[in-house]
């Protein structure tokens, strides 16, 4: 089911793009990532709009007042919040749903890239079995497009990288390889998180956001460092495109990049 609905179409599309873009898998990953971002843009736009509304609400006087008023009564506070959401026309789960819908696409994209880059027998065996004969026939109708089987093994060389191997740049005089793409992924992840998740008024939310802003870039950096550079390339392009997407929707404020997080202070109990 998962293979038929997500992986096979993704792999065959990747192969078609690879075929059309001069048989360079690096370019195919970039084009495919752009394509997926464009297709999922309406979902992301809705998510951005909803989370922006929630963020703006945290500065609303009525909201702040209710926080004070019901600070010792969680149930009443929750009810009052729901009423306020209704009044302002905010659907709090509208920001979660697009994320949930995107999740299988992201995982599918990731798996498709991994499988298409296969350089060992089991991986190539799995890849070949996912090339549909229907797709092979479809390919034959497009002028200049080759039978997908003739493309295997794929050309995994892109810029200085072998996309099936972790990225390392060796500089004379330095005994270890520098993971250029992993560093780029960490930097773009930090920028992305800082710009997309600026600190709000809620100290608890700030702390959670702060943790995400530290650990997520490190986690993504670790993946980019240890997994194949084809995936690191996907992470890097995806980060850059997300930033452009948010900027296009007017949600990027450069000043947030240099803004220090508000440190939550404990108020003395009354």
């Amino acid at each position: 089911m998962w293979d038929s609905l997500i992986i096979k179409p993704f792999i065959n599309t990747l192969l078609l793009i690879y075929n059309l873009t001069g048989e360079n898998f690096g370019i195919a990953i970039i084009v495919f990532t752009i394509l997926v971002k464009l297709i999922t843009h309406p979902l992301i736009a809705r998510q951005i709009k909803s989370s922006a509304a929630l963020q703006d609400l945290q500065k609303d006087e009525e909201y702040l007042e209710m926080q004070k008023k019901y600070k010792n009564d969680k149930e009443r506070l929750a009810q009052a919040q729901m009423d306020l959401y209704k009044k302002k026309g905010i659907k709090p789960f509208a920001s979660c749903l697009p994320t949930l819908l995107q999740f299988p696409i992201i995982i599918g994209l990731y798996q498709s890239i991994i499988q298409t880059m296969g350089t060992a027998p089991l991986q190539v065996f799995n890849l070949v079995s996912k090339i549909g004969m229907g797709m092979a026939n479809f390919f034959s109708f497009i002028p200049g497009v080759k039978n997908p089987f003739t493309l295997i093994p794929l050309n995994n060389n892109f810029l200085w990288m072998d996309l099936s191997q972790p990225d390392r740049v060796y500089i004379p005089g330095i005994s270890f390889g520098i993971p250029v793409l992993a560093i780029f992924v960490v930097i773009t992840s930090i920028i992305q998180n800082k710009l997309i998740n600026p600190s709000g008024g809620d100290p608890q939310a700030n702390q959670a956001t702060g943790m995400m802003n530290i650990y997520m870039p490190l986690l993504m950096g670790w993946f980019a460092y240890s997994l194949s550079s084809g995936l690191a390339l996907y992470f890097a392009i995806s980060n850059v495109l997300s930033l452009l997407q948010y900027a296009a929707l007017g949600r990027v404020k450069i000043k947030d990049l240099f803004k220090k997080k508000a440190v939550p202070t404990k108020k003395p109990s009354a």
Partner: peptide, 27 residues
């Protein structure tokens, strides 16, 4: 909140690594 954050990070990590394999690894 902290627990949810940690859980979210673990879910993403698990989804990315558990469902897939390293291309560089033998297979």
């Amino acid at each position: 909140n902290i627990a949810i954050t940690v859980l979210l990070i673990l879910v993403i990590a698990g989804a990315l690594t558990g469902c897939t394999s390293n291309v560089g690894a033998s297979s």
